[in-house]
Amino acid sequence: MTDTIQVGSYTLKSRLLVGTGKYCDLDETGRAIEASGADVVTMAVRRTNLGQHPNEPNLLDVISPDRYTLLPNTAGCHTADDAVRTCRLARELLDGHNLVKLEVISKSRTLYPDVVETLSAARTLVDDGFEVMVYTSDDPLIAIELEAIGCVAVMPLGAPIGSGLGLQNPYNIREILEQLKVPVIVDAGVGTASDATVAMELGCEGVLMNTAIAEAKDPVKMARAMRLAIESGRLAYEAGRMPRKRYADASSPETGLIG
């Protein structure tokens, strides 16, 4: 397929974006990412264990920055300041790479985005030259504001992070799609392949997921399922679905019948 998605200065070949958390080991991570066909792969930034396991394998050995577009996240940050510091560390870690996934999460059990801190961090990061893909709530007004600030993609949740509940908010996602010019990518909430297809059929530019693949019984097989689901959903969106009707409409001609 020649279908591509433009996110800021990055041209992406896959509309499926995947995370690297929750896998049983780096080998499984690598195989699942490969099967997903994704070119954008998220990662987290954490304190290094000092003086221990100097030969411990590194995520970047498996997910090479030469092959994949790495998307460092700010997961775990509860304030704009921490999120900005994390992005600056990530940029240094990846030799100046400026694409980041901003997420400022509340401490509640919903892990719902803290949009006040998110807006503040987004302004600082855009001013500092980052290309910001931003995780946010499904509030259309906040999405519009994040686009106005200069974020290169707006990523509303489909359902709480890691919940696998599927899109709970198709009306809001549709409304955000109609209001924004930058790519809208559903981030979080997908549980299985049909959930991803639903997001794509709505017209989303892509879907970002982690748990739905990593916590499947067979992550590599689910990664492939998601790749196909995303492609199917996008094709169906582009093809344009038939109108819904209240009653049956025979598929075979009703004339020329025998008897």
Binding site: G21, T29, T42, T48, L60, I161, G162
Partner: peptide, 10 residues
């Protein structure tokens, strides 16, 4: 000092 590296995340 904060010294960080990349790990898996979503």
């Amino acid at each position: 000092l904060e010294i960080v590296h990349a790990i898996g995340g979503g």
